[in-house]
């Protein structure tokens, strides 16, 4: 299985997320993550989809089927273009006083941040590539992880040309 990050520009209209998610489930595509948000143009929403596929052929199917949706304006496979990929994670870890120094060390090494502390917990925030996020999750699994929230990956192309003009 190979993963690709697709930047999907869609009309910011009611129903568009149903159309996209409905298509994904109907065609039984494997989706690792999906996130959506506003863009520099108020009428356009950007959906970031990480798909996991067996072959190029399957990838083409995902792109071609998504392209058929009337409200999809453009799809770019950013995994095949020079791009920067990021994901944000927040991890709540059970941490008594004696664990804290260790946790601060780990946070420093990963260049993460501690964004909340209570007597029992810390909340660690990290932005980075998925591999880095997977790595910190693994290291922290030695402690008691209370909960994790991840945004799913988003990406931008490098250089001056935006996805809408690619």
């Amino acid at each position: 299985m190979k993963k690709y990050l697709l930047a999907v520009l869609v009309d910011n209209k009611p129903g568009v997320l149903t159309h996209v998610s409905g298509l994904i489930s109907r065609r039984a595509f494997n989706i690792e993550s999906i996130s959506a948000g506003y863009t520099e143009e108020p009428s356009v929403t950007r959906i970031n989809i990480v798909v996991s596929v067996e072959s190029e052929n399957e990838l083409d199917q995902v792109v071609n089927q998504l392209s058929k949706l009337i409200d999809v304006i453009k799809i770019v496979n950013l995994s095949k273009a020079p791009s920067i990929e990021r994901e944000l994670v927040m991890i709540k870890v059970r941490a008594t006083k004696k664990d804290r120094a260790d946790l601060v060390n780990i946070v420093d090494i990963f260049r993460a941040n501690i964004v909340d502390i209570t007597p029992e917990n810390v909340v660690i925030e990290l932005t980075g590539q998925q591999s880095k996020i997977d790595a910190i999750c693994e290291v922290l699994s030695e402690y008691e992880i209370v909960e994790i929230a991840r945004t799913g990956a988003i990406a931008l192309s490098r250089g001056p040309i935006p996805v809408k003009r690619m």
Binding site: P14, G15, T18, H19, G22, L23, R26, L69, I70, D71
Partner: peptide, 14 residues
């Protein structure tokens, strides 16, 4: 109706 017809239409509107 949009929810039900999404997988069986070319497009739909409310």
């Amino acid at each position: 109706v949009c929810g039900i017809t999404t997988p069986i239409t070319k497009h739909n509107y409310l």
